[in-house]
Amino acid sequence: MFTTPVDTATSLVLLSGLAADARIFTPQKIAFPQMHCPAWLEPERSETINDYARRLAETLDEGPCIIGGASFGGIVSLHLAEHTDARAVILIGSIKSPSQLPMYARCARPFRFLIPFIPIRLLQFLARPIATRVVKRHAPFAYGLACQFRDSNPAVFKWSLRRILDWSVAPTVSCPIFHLHGDRDWTLPLRYTDPDKIVKGGGHVISLTHPGEVNSYIKDVLRQESLE
């Protein structure tokens, strides 16, 4: 299921998505030992994505690198590329611009003032029954997502959700952007995007459900950039 580890010196930085962490890239970490998935910083009050990305870049000890991310992590990676020596950006089940946000996200924008009132702690408590050994045995994918949501930082979750809804300007990225997307992604539907490659049968978390295709795509990007 996983690809053979890739022998390359090119640094690879991938950002996890909303309510997710480095566990979402477990198959990629096996294939790319040089991969780094930085933890989400505690956001400052009313901090923009670009300001957040600038602050995140200051914590990275990276030279020339490939930046990327899944879902919301891909959006942040576009801004992070402006503040690092990024040679390419890889979007994994993500989008390139606000115009590619699905209709439900655009309709939710007027209600973003309600985000502070979302009972994240309660929802995390309600997710506990899914994060059990029984579920892990019979539905490991649901178990993994429940564990990540249970362990996520409520402040980061609410900040990320608000930044998605008020994202209005895509950054100007000077390096190439590579985009991989599942054709059954209902969170960020394919019809709103224009990916370079489509993963057949892939949902929103293709890094876990289709690691072979994702790892192969990343490997091709790394190889292409190393030849330039």
Score class of each variant (00 low, 15 high):
Phe113Val: 04
His181Thr: 12
Arg128Cys: 09
Asp21Lys: 10
Phe157Gly: 02
Ile66Pro: 09
Tyr217Gly: 01
Lys96Thr: 11
Lys200His: 13
Ala57Ile: 04
Ser71Tyr: 06
Thr10Arg: 12
Phe113Gly: 13
His36Ala: 08
Pro129Trp: 03
Cys107Ile: 04
Asp183Leu: 06
Ser77Lys: 15
Ala146Gly: 05
Val173His: 13
Pro129Phe: 07
Glu44Lys: 11
Ile90His: 00
Leu145Pro: 07
His179Trp: 01
Pro116Asp: 07
Ser97Lys: 13
Ser152Asp: 10
Ala53Ile: 05
Gln124Glu: 01
Gly93His: 02
Val135Pro: 03
Arg184Ala: 13
Leu18Val: 00
Lys219Asn: 07
Pro27Ala: 11
Leu123Glu: 06
Pro176Phe: 06
Ala155Tyr: 09
Ile115Arg: 01
Trp40Ser: 06
Leu91Cys: 06
Ile30Asn: 09
Tyr192Met: 08
Arg137Leu: 14
Leu165Asp: 06
Asn215His: 05
Val169Ser: 14
Leu101Ala: 01
Phe25Glu: 00
Leu41Phe: 05
Thr8Phe: 04
Ala127His: 04
Ile75Glu: 08
Ala131Phe: 15
Phe25Ile: 05
Lys197Pro: 02
Arg55Trp: 03
Ile66Cys: 07
Ile49Gly: 00
Phe25His: 04
Asp61Leu: 10
Ala57Pro: 10
Ala131Asp: 12
Pro140Ser: 09
Thr26Gly: 12
Gly202Cys: 04
Pro5Asn: 03
Cys65Trp: 03
Cys65Arg: 05
Asp61Ala: 14
Pro154His: 06
Ala81Gly: 03
Gly74Thr: 06
Ser77Asn: 15
Ser97Thr: 15
Ile115Asn: 00
Thr84Asp: 03
Glu228Asn: 07
Tyr104Phe: 07
Gly63Phe: 11
Leu122Trp: 09
Arg137Asn: 08
Pro211Ile: 03
Val214Met: 11
Glu82Met: 12
Arg54Gln: 11
Pro27His: 07
Gly144Tyr: 02
His204Ile: 00
Cys147Met: 13
Val169Asp: 14
Pro119Arg: 01
Leu161Glu: 11
Thr48Leu: 10
Gly17Val: 01
Pro5Thr: 11
Ser226Gly: 03
Ser174Lys: 15
Arg54Pro: 01
Glu225Leu: 09
Glu58Lys: 14
Thr48Pro: 14
Asp21Arg: 05
Phe111Ala: 04
Ala108Ser: 11
Asp61Gly: 13
Glu47Asp: 07
Val76Ser: 07
Asp183Ile: 08
Ala170Trp: 11
Ser226Thr: 13
Ser77Arg: 14
Ala22His: 12
Ala9Lys: 14
Thr10Glu: 13
